[in-house]
Amino acid sequence: MLAYAIKRSFAAFLILIVVSGLTFSLSHLSADPALTIAGEQASDEDIQAIRELYGFDRPIYIQYLEWAGRAMTGDFGESYHYGERVSTMIAGRIGTTMSLGVLAILFALIISIPLGVVAAMRPNSLVDRFALLVAVFGQALPTFWFALMMIIVLGVWWRWLPISGNDSWAHFVMPTIALGYYATPALMRLTRAGMIEVLGSDYIRTARAKGLSPTVVLFKHALRNAIIPVVALAAVWFGFMLGGSIVIETIFNLKGIGWLSYDALLRSDLPVVQAIVLIFASLYVVLTLAADLVNAWLDPRISVR
C-alpha cells in the first residue's frame, strides 16, 4: 500500500512537471514578455534592459527551472500588468472560484440524486422519462449559451437575479445553475444505475425480509450504498467545474481565478496564466491521486497490480 502510494505520488509529481514545463514554453512562445512589461511606447533600449533585468535573455529551460523552483515554495512571481504578487492575486480570488465550484457540485447533486433515485425506483415511469430528457438534452446544451439565456430570462426580462458581479449570494445563483447543470446527466445516470443495482441486491431483500419500512429500506440500506460512487464522481467533477469556471465567471463577471485567467490571457500576463494552469493541474492530479488511493485502500488487490 505504501509502496503503491509512493509510486503514484511520484508519477503525479512527474505529470505536474511536464504540464508546467509545456505551459511555460507555450506561454513564452506567445509573446515577448519584455514587450508586455515595457508597454507600447518603450524604446528598444528599455526593452533590452527589461530583458536583462528579468533574465528573459537566458535559455528557456533555465528560466523554467528558476520559475519551478520558486513555484514550489508558492512564489509565482509578479503580474506583468498589475505589478502585484501573483500569489496574492490568486489567494484573493480563489475563494470565489471554490465557492462557485462547491455550490455548483451541490446543485448538481441536489438535482441528480433525487431524480436518479426516483427514476431507479420506477423504471419507465414519467419521472424516469423526465430524467432521461434532462440527461439527453443536458448533454447537448452549450454551457455558456445556457448561461446567456438565463441572464436574458431571469435577469433581464423577469429581473429576479443580478446578472453581473459577486457582491451577494444572489450573484451566485445563476452561475451555480449554469455550471452545475452540466454535471447532472452524468451524476444522475450513475445514481440511477447504482440504485437499480443496489435495489436488486441480496441485502435489500434481507432488509425487506426483516419487515423494515420502505423508507428505512430505501434511505438507510439502499441509498447509502448507491451514493458512494456518486460522491466519488462528484469530487472529480469538481475538478472539471474549475475549468468550466473560466467561461462562467467571465459571463457573469464573477471575479474568481477563472475570470482572472481570462483577464490575464487578454493582457498576456504570463506569470498569472502559468500559476493558474499549475493550480488547475495540481487540483486534478491531487483529486485523481486521492481517488486512486481511496480505491486502493478499499480494495487491497489494486495496489498489488
Binding site: 508519477a11 505529470i15 505536474l16 511536464v18 504540464v19 509545456l22 505551459t23 507555450l26 506561454s27 512562445l29 506567445s30 509573446a31 474549475l242 475549468g243 468550466g244 473560466i246 467561461v247 485567467s261 481570462y262 490571457l265 498576456s268 496564466v273 493558474i276 494552469v277 488547475f280 493541474a281 486534478y284 492530479v285 485523481t288
Partner: peptide, 18 residues
C-alpha cells in the same frame, strides 16, 4: 495522464494567444 491533467480550455486559450 499528462494530457488529462492539463486544463484543456485554459491551455487552448493560451495556445491560441501564442
Amino acid at each position: 495522464n499528462t494530457r488529462l491533467a492539463m486544463p484543456v480550455f485554459l491551455v487552448a486559450m493560451a495556445a491560441v494567444v501564442a
